[in-house]
Design a protein around this nucleic acid. Structure first.
Length: 587
RNA sequence: GGACCCGUAGCUCAGCUGGAUAGAGCGCUGCCCUCCGAAGGCAGAGGUCGAAGGUUCGAAUCCUUUCGGGUCCGCCA
């Protein structure tokens, strides 16, 4: 969905060298790409491009590889070129070339990689009014925020929208429940007046919804009442609107606090309610054009295609009583976004995987209606957070686990660990605990692939050792500490020389950042980036153990290693930033 | 009934368009702080990649079948 604008990355430079060699050998250049060597003791990079050419060229793959290797021989970027196994071309990069790349990356971690800018809306978060954020929202918020940063970092004009669930039957249920409990509220009087204050707070409100939903499930009369209130709200009855507006503000305030804690940024705080004015006209348009058709009293849009391998049920646009449904709202939201952003090129939905069929229907309906010409609609579903039983996570009490509680637990655990530290005042300690605790939770969530669900394990989410956010933060902090000491002793970073194996590994690893970011963007998969930062932090830890920096054998090596430290830190900090994870000065 | 996703080490998970000896973390065993921060490093044990076929020079990866788990399927969102 994106195209590179410019790149002077290590891989791009080597690919160009390979392409030239392929051409010299009279071969098509499609396979002229280098990958990380699967056996680092044999090579830095390997090219497998000779193998698939065997058939079309009618030659033994080793012969093809040998021809390519001959064309590569003596290139200044390469120290050695060897053909191995069935036809792998093993490349050892020259120290000079590596130093060049590392130096370039020192001033720009992304090595100039940008993409042709496009306007994108990214839709994530999606909390419902009156429901607190729970652990299920973690994935949407954390993945969505990271994708927002990754896409923006590549130069795209990204707009994030939280898409509140603030419309529909749930709101009617709440109104009905509240009227039963507080009939004296001024919004129920005639004429209705906005309530000066509400008799409930957010904590009460979060209990009202499950109570109302349970009542409606058990009692058809209560359900009928909720439907009537929903209809009244949607038709604009003033008292209903007043109460609705107050509830919405109350829960949005609480949710905004959670967004701030977890570091999710929203450019727009729009919701389902904001597109309701567009719906009557949209339905009229769809009916007039014959796209929406009556079926059993309801209004549907057929979205099945003849080429479908699987059945595609129609999209239900309006119920038999005329009321709109969430598919209607989601379709109208596309219209709204296209109107708001004339240059819109893509909408990315970071939504629960279970809604994939629903969005497929909405996307097809939008295509049939021509509502989003030239706009790529992408469903980036994520898996559910499960309990040990493999089903969506519930607390021991049977309720959902609140996100704020999980974050508090992680922050508390970090604070505990920092408690003995005398060098921090209370305020600094609290801020640091927050930075570390949040990093632990976010990194753990970002580590698994977007679509796979994972088992919710608080122990793992708030762990600080091993493959965790704090481990990567720790690497950054140690580097900062070395650089500080060096500066105090009057030593500055200097020209990079790649000598030791650990130095080579570090430079090769760091240089992958732009490739990883591009891939993470293309696949909408922040876990690739999480994997990368952890691997680079590991490479640094090995370098740190093997190669003394301040106590290096001579001043040139010390200057080079200081530059490598600075480079590594810049790349790690940039990668973590794209994941939405901050780095403290000390920890 | 129909469709989609998943099944990889004791546990939790990676594994990018098929490529050499399938990885990480946790847990377990043993080393390493008079040496730049041990939230660390090194070494080790642990896998018929659910099963069976097929495509291919080559399969955890692609196709078919099968078993097991999860999810969704017009008047909730």
């Amino acid at each position: 969905m994106t195209a590179p604008l410019a790149s002077t990355t290590l891989s791009a430079r080597i690919d160009a060298v390979l392409a030239e060699a392929f051409a010299t050998a009279g071969l098509p250049v499609e396979g002229a790409r280098a990958a990380r060597a699967s056996r680092p003791e044999l090579a830095d990079l390997q090219c497998n491009g000779a193998l698939p050419l065997a058939k079309s060229q009618g030659q033994n793959p080793r012969e093809i590889a040998t021809a390519i290797a001959a064309a590569l021989a003596g290139h200044p970027a390469l120290d050695s070129v060897e053909v191995a196994g069935p036809g792998f071309i093993n490349l050892r990069l020259s120290a000079r070339f590596l130093a060049d790349c590392a130096t370039a990356q020192g001033s720009d971690p992304m090595m100039g990689l940008r993409e042709v800018p496009r306007r994108m809306v990214i839709d994530f978060g999606g909390p419902n009014v009156a429901k607190p954020l729970h652990v299920g929202h973690l994935r949407s918020l954390v993945i969505g925020e990271s994708l927002r940063r990754i896409l923006a970092g590549l130069g795209h004009h990204v707009v994030s929208d939280v898409h509140l669930g603030d419309w529909g039957l749930q709101m009617g249920m709440l109104v009905a429940e509240i009227r039963r409990r507080w009939p004296e509220l001024s919004c129920f009087a005639t004429p209705p007046r906005p309530p000066a204050s509400l008799p409930f707070d957010m904590a009460d409100l979060t209990l009202l919804y499950p109570a109302a939903a349970a009542a409606c499930r058990e009692d058809p009369d209560r359900m009928a009442e909720a439907r009537a209130d929903t209809a009244a709200l949607q038709s604009g009855e003033p008292g209903h609107r007043m109460l609705w507006s107050a509830m919405r503000a109350l829960s949005l305030a609480a949710q905004t606090r959670d967004f701030a804690t977890i570091g999710a940024h929203f450019d727009l705080l729009l919701g389902e309610s904001d597109v309701q004015p567009l719906i009557p006209g949209m339905i009229e348009d769809l009916v007039e054009r014959g796209i929406a058709i009556p079926s059993d009293g309801a209004l549907i849009v057929e979205v099945a295609a003849e080429t479908d391998a699987r059945p595609m049920p129609p999209l239900l646009l309006a119920k038999s009583d005329g009321a709109a449904l969430y598919a209607t709202t989601d379709l109208a939201t596309i219209l709204e976004r296209v109107q708001r952003f004339p240059d819109l090129a893509a909408i990315v939905y970071v939504v629960d995987q279970r809604q994939s069929l629903h969005f497929e229907q909405v996307f097809r309906a939008a295509a049939r209606a021509g509502y989003a010409p030239g706009v790529t609609l992408t469903f980036a579903g994520f898996g559910t957070v499960n309990g040990p039983d493999g089903k969506p996570y519930k607390t021991r009490q049977g309720g959902v686990a609140q996100l704020a509680d999980l974050l508090d637990e992680a922050i508390g655990k970090a604070a505990e660990r920092l408690a003995p530290r005398a060098d921090l005042d209370d305020d600094a300690r609290a801020r640091l605990a927050r930075t570390i605790g949040i990093a632990a939770v976010k990194f753990a969530d970002l580590s698994s692939y977007r679509t796979s669900g994972y088992v919710f394990d608080p122990e793992r989410l708030v762990s600080f050792e091993g493959r965790t956010g704090p481990y990567v933060q720790y690497a950054c902090v140690r580097i900062a500490s070395i650089l500080e000491r060096a500066a105090a002793e009057g030593h500055a970073p200097g020209a990079i020389a790649v000598i030791e194996p650990a130095e080579r590994a570090l430079v090769l690893d760091a240089a992958r950042l732009p490739d990883i970011v591009a891939s993470a963007a293309a696949n909408l998969a922040p876990n690739e980036l999480a994997d990368f930062v952890f691997g680079l932090a590991q490479s640094f830890s090995r370098f740190y153990a093997d190669c003394p920096v301040l106590a290096a054998p001579d001043p040139d090596i010390r200057a080079s290693r200081l530059a490598l430290c600075a480079l590594t830190r810049a790349v790690l900090v940039h990668g973590l930033d794209l994941l939405g994870i901050a780095v403290p000065d000390r920890m």
